[in-house]
Design a binder for these strands. Structure first.
Length: 402
DNA sequence: GTCAATTCACATGAAAGAGACCACGGTCTAGTG
DNA sequence: CTAGACCGTGGTCTCTTTCATGTGAATTGACGA
């Protein structure tokens, strides 16, 4: 009961945050630091839209947390604001994140989402694709207007669907009488443009813009800017910001990561009842973020995925050096027998292993063992603490007693 | 010893099926005037 | 006569299977020094 008291007390009396939302990733600050060049470039490319002219398609690329989305949204907001000032209403700025599961990760859903954001009504499923397309065209073509369509994480969409839908979108312009569509593609992958249809490439890439990684100093500026309003005065210990920035810069100059770090460190300090955020909180925050992310991923997987992972974990515990696809499949089959679940084909299990690799739960490398064939060499990518937790989660989910 | 052919154990791709979900339009049923 | 229930059809989406093809180096076996 003392513990509860302590927790409640620390919340009641000792709130370190002034406004936590500011250090959350989706907050859009009014000034974007160290991206002036890019923001100006975007603005000058999109500006003709104010006169109702079609603007060039634009392609933005750069690593995660390099400010792409933020910059575009910022310019978009300013643009629509300006539009209102002039008193016109022939510009629509639509932002869609193609990676959102169950929302906009298929061709149908992307278009449906478009219609929705135009206040249209469209069922989640059930209509033929071209019906959705024509509904969309109908909706926007009723008057002269410019539609600026931002497709975030467009590489994910193209990978899942194919690149023809971008082509369809760009070609719509020739069928529209009044409206004009312009695309802004945003991609995390630098190599995305290399392996897509050249027609798409040339139309989407009319203008290209690279967002470089932030370095540690720039990250510090960004963190300071946000921390000023997010935290109460004097709660940040000396060097906290510098350390957050350094951590994040060590990775990929990811600003989102840096902010998460700062926020979680704050939450931890608060929970602890500390009056200040100290350096040690950042270390724990770093571990916690890593751990939570992994466990979330593991917990969120379907039964079959969990069984495969459980098989890998068992094999790893037994030791004996490397784990190969064949071993995993055998162990997996045994587990299926125990849990009375259907056994998937090796083909499918191979894909599941590849997906775990993508998620970063395991490291899988394709190697050739000569006459012993080709296979994946699999290593678990979890530290012992996470492993323990993960095991618990899996055993619970699979209803296994060991 | 050297070299090309062979071979293994999967990887990787493409296509297609099953089953869930859903909209639409037509038909049936019950309730109303 | 009409509103709502109910059905069949046709569409998407996800997960999976089936079939086909690809692949990199250890191994093998022929060959020549």
């Amino acid at each position: 009961m003392d513990k509860i008291d302590k927790i409640l007390d620390s919340y009641a009396t000792n709130n370190l945050f002034k406004d936590k939302s500011i250090v959350q990733a989706n907050y859009v600050p009014e000034a974007i630091l160290h991206r002036a060049e890019q923001v100006e470039a975007i603005a000058s490319i999109l500006a003709p839209a104010l006169r109702g002219e079609k603007v060039s398609n634009l392609f933005l690329y750069g690593g995660t947390g390099s400010g792409k989305t933020l910059s575009v949204q910022h310019v978009g907001e300013r643009l629509t604001e300006k539009m209102k000032q002039i008193g016109e209403d022939n510009l629509k700025f639509i932002y869609i994140n193609c990676k959102l599961k169950k929302v906009a990760d298929t061709e149908y859903r992307i278009i449906a989402q478009l219609i929705k954001s135009l206040k249209g009504n469209i069922p989640f499923t059930g209509l033929p694709l071209n019906a959705v397309y024509s509904k969309f065209m109908e909706m926007i073509d009723d008057k002269k207007q410019v539609i600026i369509l931002v497709l975030d994480e467009i590489d994910q969409a193209v990978k899942k669907i194919n690149d023809s839908f971008i082509y369809t979108l760009t070609r719509m312009n020739s069928e529209l009488k009044n409206a004009q569509i312009s695309l802004i593609g945003i991609s995390n992958s630098l190599t995305f443009m290399e392996n897509i249809d050249p027609r798409v490439k040339s139309s989407l890439g009319e203008e290209e813009l690279l967002f470089p990684h932030y370095n540690a100093l720039q990250l510090q500026d960004i963190l300071r800017q946000r921390a000023e309003n997010a935290f109460k005065e004097g709660v940040l210990d000396e060097g906290v910001i510098a350390k957050c920035a350094a951590y994040a810069a060590r990775g990929y100059g990811d600003a989102r990561r840096a902010l998460d770090l700062l926020r979680v460190a704050g939450e931890l300090a608060e929970r602890e009842g500390a009056k200040k955020i100290e350096l040690k909180h950042i270390d724990t925050a770093n571990q916690k973020i890593e751990k939570d992310k992994m466990l979330d991923v593991i917990e969120g997987q379907s039964i079959q995925f969990q069984q495969v992972l459980y098989a890998i974990m068992n094999l790893e515990k037994k030791g004996r050096g490397s784990i190969f696809t064949g071993d995993v499949y055998n162990a997996y089959q045994e587990i299926c027998n125990k849990t009375k679940n259907e056994i998937l084909t090796q083909r499918r299990v191979g894909d599941i292993i590849a997906e775990f690799d993508m998620l970063g739960v395991i490291n899988a490398r394709v190697i050739s063992k000569g006459r012993q064939g080709r296979t994946r060499e699999i290593k678990l990518n979890l530290n012992s603490e996470i492993k323990e937790k993960a095991k618990e989660i899996l055993e619970k989910a699979l209803d296994l007693r060991v």
